[in-house]
């Protein structure tokens, strides 16, 4: 199957006052069409900057140096102009962020923002057609009082509602890749669980591939088909979710899994001091590439 996204040996460096720091040390990953792939790691591991590189945002920073291959639907992203890259975002590639309420524009109603999103793909879309389409999209995320939601401003809706709206908007133009950066972390657990289920079903139905960025192993286990574990700018383990969770091979992955408190009890896990084994080479489960 073809890759929607392929990253090859990606290196990211930041130039600062104290010299150059390397943040990503050559990571490679691929996402096939319709596949849900998670990039899981702690804060500062480089998972969010990876997403921002794919979106083309980091390259606009003068202090950032990005090297390595980036291919989206077989086109070389590095050869795109800024304008072409911008045109991809919101149409072929879209995103969802941690806090839905702050990622929606507070001064426009949901309806206006929907129309704007839909017009990115189809600039001539009429207001009525946009409203109709928005209604269908809201249905798909189980929001049924369309009129109220479309006329509301983001701050008038609950966090969970905004998250659903954000999901519907992100999928409005049938993107082939959805980048979700810690979605729902700012929400209550029950709401987070509901929206994740919803998103899971929706991307499955639409066949959208997802790059899911998270620090939460539990959430990843429920959402992703395949996972990459990232530690300090290196991928340390990759494979199908089931395989990695049942049989983690890399020392870092094991420590990470052990550290999660279990709802079945057993006390607070004892964590060894960070040892050199965390820098062991990549562990790959199964036949990863067809």
């Amino acid at each position: 199957m073809r890759d929607v996204l392929r990253i090859e040996d990606l290196v990211l460096k930041f130039r600062g006052y104290t010299g150059v720091t390397e943040v990503l040390h050559g990571i490679s990953l691929n996402i096939r069409a319709g596949e849900r792939v998670a990039l899981v790691g702690e804060s500062g591991s480089g998972k969010s900057v990876t997403a921002r590189i794919v979106l083309g945002q980091l390259q606009e920073l003068r202090s950032a140096q990005v090297q390595g291959g980036l291919y989206f639907e077989e086109q070389d992203l590095n050869r795109l102009s800024r304008r072409q890259w911008h045109a991809l975002r919101g149409t072929h590639m879209s995103m969802i962020f941690q806090d839905p309420t702050s990622s929606l524009n507070p001064v426009f109603t949901i309806g206006v923002q929907f129309t704007e999103v839909l017009r990115r793909r189809d600039p001539k879309l009429s207001k009525e057609a946009a409203a109709k389409r928005a209604g269908e999209l809201l249905n798909s995320v189980s929001i049924h009082d369309h009129a109220r939601v479309l006329n509301a401003y983001p701050f008038q809706l609950s966090g969970g509602m905004n998250q659903r709206v954000a999901i519907a908007m992100a999928l409005a133009n049938h993107p082939s890749l959805l980048i979700a950066d810690e979605p729902g972390t700012a929400l209550d657990v029950t709401v987070q669980a509901q929206t994740l289920h919803l998103m899971h079903d929706l991307v499955e139905r639409t066949g959208t591939a997802v790059l899911f960025i998270s620090h939460n192993l539990g959430v990843v286990r429920e959402f992703a088909d395949r996972i990459y574990v990232i530690y300090r700018g290196r991928i340390v383990e990759q494979g199908p979710t089931q395989a990695v969770f049942e049989n983690p091979r890399h020392a870092y992955t094991r420590a990470l899994m052990a550290a999660v408190p279990r709802i079945t009890g057993g006390g607070v896990p004892e964590i060894q001091d960070m040892d050199g084994a965390f820098f062991d080479p990549l562990e790959v489960h199964g036949e990863d590439r067809p």
Partner: peptide, 28 residues
């Protein structure tokens, strides 16, 4: 609370916890 929650709300809360092991999924 975890083995025999009386309230539905408690049950919902426990059911929403993202978990990592097979035993936990079974409990849920």
């Amino acid at each position: 609370i975890f083995e025999n929650p009386r309230e539905d709300y408690t049950r919902q809360l426990i059911g929403a916890v993202p978990v990592v092991t097979r035993e936990e999924i079974e409990l849920r």
